[in-house]
């Protein structure tokens, strides 16, 4: 199955109205990364962080980016969200090339990064300030997304009154409240304990199921990448480049110990721990 077919299959699963389509018309990708490279100079000598990274994310697709630390996966997200505009290549959102901040792209960081001086509602509402919504709609939206992440009882709490998991949920609500098409997540559950991590993964899938947002999730947790993603992009380091793309191809809900996931996990481990020579196309 080609990449495009996979994407269309996904889109059809998510959006029943597309199923009647003959499947030939390729929908515009939510996000497309074309030959993106990034280098900077370290003490005068150039250092290449990313080389020739290309992939697309279909509408409503979840793509995992897996790699050891230092392979440039966080840098990649910073380029997409627009925090760093100094790169080569092309990044397009919904078919339109973009460089710099884009309201269609939101980001969740590894640490919740909530503003300690604002309540949950204040933090979530911050993401709506740029949107110029009428007061009532703004309040409704904040409430809706705070409910969605299960924090209704804590809407007026300050971040220091929240546990790590609750704070990260609030951060997800803040990212989703502006209703972006693309959600970037940089090791979003990396700072949480392992049980909580599993629970939040399921919660993320539940939210995604209702929201149909496209997600790029960067992680070094192989199981997390395979459990969440439609496709997993494996990066190798020095410079960061795509080693291979793994098509998970399972419907949801998935079992964490699905034999297919278990065998993919073995494959991934080999790729990450002992990468064979790259398959050049």
């Amino acid at each position: 199955m080609t990449l495009e077919q996979v994407q269309q299959k996904r889109a059809a699963v998510l959006r029943p109205e597309l199923r009647k389509d003959n499947g030939n018309a390729p929908a515009t990708a939510a996000l497309s990364i074309g030959r993106v490279g990034k280098s900077f100079s370290l003490n005068g000598s150039p250092r290449e962080i990313l080389r020739d990274v290309s992939f697309t994310v279909g509408k409503g697709e979840i793509v995992g980016v897996l790699g050891a630390s230092g392979c440039g996966k966080s840098t990649l997200l910073r380029l997409i969200v627009g925090l760093d505009q100094d790169y080569s290549g092309r990044i397009a959102v919904s078919g339109e090339e973009t460089r710099g901040l884009n309201r269609d792209v939101a980001m969740v960081f590894q640490d919740h990064r909530l503003f300690p001086w604002l309540t949950v509602a204040g933090n979530v509402g911050l993401a709506l300030e740029a949107l110029d919504l009428p007061g009532k709609e703004k309040a409704d939206r904040i409430r809706h997304y705070v409910d969605l992440v299960g924090l209704s009882d804590y809407i007026d709490a300050y971040p220091k009154q929240l546990s790590g998991g609750m704070a990260q949920r609030a951060a997800i609500a803040r990212a989703l409240v502006s209703e972006p098409n693309i959600l970037l997540m940089d090791e979003p559950f990396g700072a949480l304990d392992s049980l909580l991590r599993l629970r939040l993964q399921d919660e993320l899938l539940r939210i995604w199921d209702r929201n149909n947002v496209s997600i790029v999730v960067v992680t070094h947790d192989i199981e997390e990448a395979l459990y969440l993603s439609d496709r997993v992009i494996v990066l190798e380091a020095n410079p960061g480049r795509i080693h291979s793309v793994i098509d998970v191809g399972l419907d949801r809900p998935r079992l964490r110990d699905d034999p297919h996931i278990v065998s993919l996990k073995r494959q991934c481990l080999e790729l990450v721990l002992d990468p064979p020579a790259r398959i050049t196309s």
Partner: peptide, 13 residues
């Protein structure tokens, strides 16, 4: 700096 990045990504006026 971490919070400043959030302020930037949220595109605050």
């Amino acid at each position: 700096k971490a919070l400043e990045e959030v302020a930037r990504t949220l595109d605050l006026p």
